[in-house]
Nucleic acid binder design. Sequence first.
RNA 1: GGAGAGGUGGCAGAGUGGUCGAAUGCGCUCGACUUGAAAUCGAGUGUCCCAAAAGGACCGUGGGUUCGAAUCCCACCCUCUCCGCCA
Length: 426
Amino acid sequence: MLDIKQIRDNPEQVQAKLDLRGGGYDLKPILELDKQQRELEVGRSQLQARSNEIGKRVGQKIKSGAKPDDAEVLALKEEGNQIKAQLSDLEPQEKEIKEQLQALLLTFPNLPSDETPVGKSEDENVEIRRWGDEYIPTNPDILPHYEIGEKLGILNFERSVKIAQSRFVTLLGAGAALERALIQFMLDRHTQAGFVEVLPPILINTASLTASGQLPKFADESFKCDRDDLWLTPTAEVPITSLYRDEILEADSLPIYHCAYTPCFRREAGSYGRDTRGLIRLHQFNKVEMFKFVRPETSMDELESLTQTAEGILQALKLPYRVIALCTGDLGFASVKTYDLEVWLPSQGKYREISSCSNCTDFQARRASLRFKEAGKKGTQFLHTLNGSGLAVGRTMAAILENYQQPDGAIAVPEALKPYLGRDVL
RNA sequence: GGAGAGGUGGCAGAGUGGUCGAAUGCGCUCGACUUGAAAUCGAGUGUCCCAAAAGGACCGUGGGUUCGAAUCCCACCCUCUCCGCCA
């Protein structure tokens, strides 16, 4: 959530940043509601002050022996009743305005950082660096991962339709083992890098989805359990953001690093024709996520190191990739700056997203009321949150099935995974 | 799913109509004493809105009664315990 004070004090500046995203965000209704709300508040709190005063006076009179039907007491009561009548008119108005303002604020995205390249769409994202060109396979006959996977009997899409529907996969034998090995490998790397593993609930409530920014705008993207206030998590980012929701943390406890393996569930509404085959776009997939709660002044540096940690996984697996900076038009709702990692997929002849690392600054912290307190100092501050995939497991598997494909159709096991799988070849 | 208990500040826990944003204890901060520490004693110590003062809001949430509600009434949510079912 944006800071209403910032909007109030620098409306043009904030509007200019929003315009960089596109999407036609207009601050005027917010400014108008804010103005109304503050005017109503002034009137209301003055009345309330007088009402409190009267309450006190009546109490004093009665304590000091006045009868409840004493003329003076009756007059005060009468005034109290009048104020109450006025308040019962003002209060609902103010409440209504406040709710409208809040609801509107929740639909506004975070402001892009000055470091984020300006652009309208993903076409204007900027490549920052590439790694692992030497590992790009030269064999021209590489089968798509879903074909080789089905041939080896380790992936099955057709039968998954029977169990669920399209965009689901069942892993069998070495496929299941590889997925599990990847998860274990990634978590081991992250915990060694200082991330504390969490295994959170994956059914999560509306408040949690609102806190991280998925709601109210992107309800269509998540699966909902209709009878309960529970949704299937679209990413571990959501439960982890709410891990410390409504808490005031000690400054000493920061930074807090967490990593988590969870299945992720996405409805993929509006992507009907895209990536219909294979592991790239499924309703259910596994992901290992990294998450940081940090002091505000460190968050940009933390984003760099978060990205490097994610890159470390790809490097350890010797998978060729590139890092791109998302432009303002392609930036996620909660983020001010995002690096995507894209892995090389030989069958498609292009790089595909496998991780997304974002600095959400105080945007989620505001929604989730995540604050910290400096020992000895007065007041509290919102902390900053960052999240990054480390990595999307299914897409990693796809990349391995293609980049490690041998001319005879076998899949070599990446050196780093051999201890986890106990075999050299799939 | 059935029955019961309960939701108050960082924690424990009092408060059942007025001067209560809230006793007390613990914790924490500062100070005194001490060579230092412990113990002891003294002072302080919630969050939010408002530029700030003044003022206002907050005792699970939302309504109601009243001049006045943490306290009374209604509805809802959540947590805990027991029983049932279950991995």
